[in-house]
Write a protein that binds this DNA or RNA. Structure first.
Lengths: 195, 195
DNA sequence: AACGTTCTTGACCGAATGGTCAAGTGCTCG
DNA sequence: CGAGCACTTGACCATTCGGTCAAGAACGTT
């Protein structure tokens, strides 16, 4: 278990997390052993347990930090756009782009959702994401731009539709991302605006 | 490995599958050992390997047969409804209801999607589901009831939105299913109809 | 009753696995 | 230079896992 980290230590930690994330995404969390991780990095096993107290903690940290990164990207893409509906559209586009660049986390989020042990982290991530989207939706409702419905529910529906489209078209079928993004935006905006 | 099954054999097989599905959903696939399954059923380990050649084959069979059951339910719910948009709505309602009754398969589908080994079965299931929905959407487009867009993409978006809403509201938050179903139907129908 | 088939038992096996630790290396700063 | 802390090593451990198999029980058919 770590205490203070020098720059060297921080770099190792990052390296372990990024590499482990790739292995977990490729072969799965359980089938990837701690030995696999350290051996492919050509370091001793003790290195792993210097930085993380368990394999479980490692994945939790990966989930937490990667979601922070996604969120940063969304906020950056939205900037100070005043139109709430446009903000949602920009958020959707940024999210799909981010997953395209960080494919491995898509699989990881999905796996973690099926394992109770990671429910706490994942739940926190999810709640933040929904709250972010719901804020814009609420504002859009106030502005009379979308029909008055439960904003959190609309946010969930948007997340679900976008994730599904990303998985199938961008990851599984390797189709160009643009068409998928347009379909996602169109479906979601029509979905929330309501005729 | 089995050859011919008597009624007794078929019952055992079902029992193993249902029980294993519950354990997998509760504790996860990898953390649930074959010993766990047979011990809690109070039978010898050989019983398991008489009906299934491996733990992997067991889950594949669970995924395959449970999806068949879901599909049967959808078709039954749709009946001979002539309006394609209404058929989609009936399909959405039937799906959410089925998952409510068979919660365990929701977790299982999700886990399997994160493990390459189950990609073949899951892909087949998914393709069938999308093709089913896309047929109705295509017909709705021909009838001029919905905007002319890629039917498969719309089908994916519907599946994604409904699954996400079901997971969060029905499973995680235990809210009454009706409101969720209404939100899902409203969002999806507006999403495909297009302004 | 007797015979072949279906089904069940549970000890056993080799191959991991997550995690520990005593010993050592190398960096930094006084 | 030398002390102290950050980091690294890799053999080792207890445990567990998926899967096998020789032996036998239960069943159905004649």
């Amino acid at each position: 278990m770590r205490r203070k980290l020098t720059q060297r230590g921080k770099d190792r930690r990052r390296q372990l997390m990024e590499h482990a994330a790739e292995l977990f995404a490729e072969r799965g969390y359980h089938p990837t052993s701690v030995s696999d991780i350290v051996e492919s990095l050509r370091v001793g096993k003790g290195v792993f347990y210097w930085y993380f107290s368990s394999k479980e903690e490692l994945l939790s940290e990966i989930l937490r930090e990667s979601h922070q990164d996604l969120r940063r990207r969304q906020q950056q893409a939205i900037g100070d756009e005043p139109n709430p509906v446009l903000r949602i559209e920009l958020g959707i586009r940024a999210t799909i782009e981010w997953f395209l660049e960080h494919r491995k986390y898509f699989t990881l989020f999905q796996f973690a959702a099926s394992d109770e042990r990671f429910a706490p982290v994942l739940r926190r991530n999810h709640d933040v994401a929904i709250a972010d989207a719901a804020r814009h939706i609420k504002e859009a409702i106030v502005d009379g731009l979308v029909a008055d419905q439960n904003p959190e529910m609309l946010a969930e529906a948007i997340v679900g539709a976008c994730n599904q489209l990303t998985r199938t078209y961008v990851f599984d079928r390797h189709e160009p991302v643009e068409r998928t993004t347009e379909a996602a935006v169109s479906f979601c905006l029509h979905g929330i605006v309501g005729k």
